[in-house]
């Protein structure tokens, strides 16, 4: 496999830049073909976040913004494993997450959806994968919310994920959905993913991960682009 083609986005899985049903793509998708690039040192490396001191509650969104009580909603715990395309675990890589609250409202001031904010829920957190590529965080199940893409458009329940891996080409921003959500069928952002990839964005309910009398468990495994399990000359 040549240096040029290695790590390319899988076009049988990944969404295209332009997807007419998602109207924001029309003025924002690059219109000219991308240029193939032979990887240099810059592309073979990426930020490693080993020096970062995560806060003790960074991976618990049910507790990291408490002001005067518990956040409202269904408490969940999300587990998963991050691997590369060879199935090798991606250890010690940063995962950032953000989401709406249980009522379907984001803290972000641009979100003006008429649903209540929760004073005890910010909706953002982060964690690192362990030495085996596993991660875990606690949160509140996010609500669905309307958006302006088309008449009566609603986003399915979802959690935003941001991941790095160990080189800049393994960078991934994605969304985790929930099993059985009837809105997935109507959501152009989800439907923009090619059929082969869609199921991969739906977390699985797992009774073994469910913590008795405390939180429902979901599993969301992630495969990053790339074939190298260890960083290349990052230091």
């Amino acid at each position: 496999m040549s240096d040029l083609m290695e790590n390319s986005f899988d076009i049988e899985v990944q969404p295209s830049h332009l997807y007419l049903a998602y109207t924001s793509t029309i003025l924002r998708a690059p219109s000219k073909p991308l240029l193939l690039l032979k990887k240099s040192l810059t592309e073979k490396t990426g930020p490693l976040f080993e020096d970062f001191n995560l806060g003790i509650l960074d991976n618990d969104l049910t507790k990291n913004a408490i002001k005067n009580g518990e956040p409202i909603g269904e408490r969940i715990v999300v587990h998963g494993k991050v691997v590369n395309e060879k199935g090798q675990p991606m250890p010690h890589t940063l995962i950032e997450i953000w989401q709406a609250n249980a009522a379907g409202r984001y803290v972000h001031k641009v979100d003006q959806h008429d649903a209540p904010l929760d004073p005890n829920f910010l909706g953002t957190g982060r964690c690192m994968t362990d030495s085996e590529g596993n991660y875990r965080f606690y949160t509140i199940k996010p609500g669905a919310y309307p958006w302006g893409n088309h008449h009566n458009a609603w986003r399915p329940n979802h959690i935003h994920f941001s991941l790095f891996g160990n080189e800049i080409s393994s960078r991934l921003i994605t969304q985790m959905y929930f099993p059985g959500d009837p809105l997935l069928e109507y959501d152009p952002i989800y439907q923009a993913v090619k059929a082969k990839g869609r199921e991969l964005l739906i977390s699985k309910f797992d009774l073994n991960l469910t913590e008795p009398d405390f939180a429902l468990g979901y599993r969301f495994d992630i495969v990053l682009r790339g074939h190298n399990a260890t960083p290349f000359e990052n230091r």
Binding site: P15, G123, Q175, K194
Partner: peptide, 20 residues
């Protein structure tokens, strides 16, 4: 070891990333 795993699809960052 060469078993290929399917890449997790990309999704938009959306408009509300600021606070996260």
């Amino acid at each position: 070891m060469n078993t290929t795993k399917t890449q997790t699809p990309s999704q938009t960052v959306g408009p509300y990333f600021g606070y996260g």
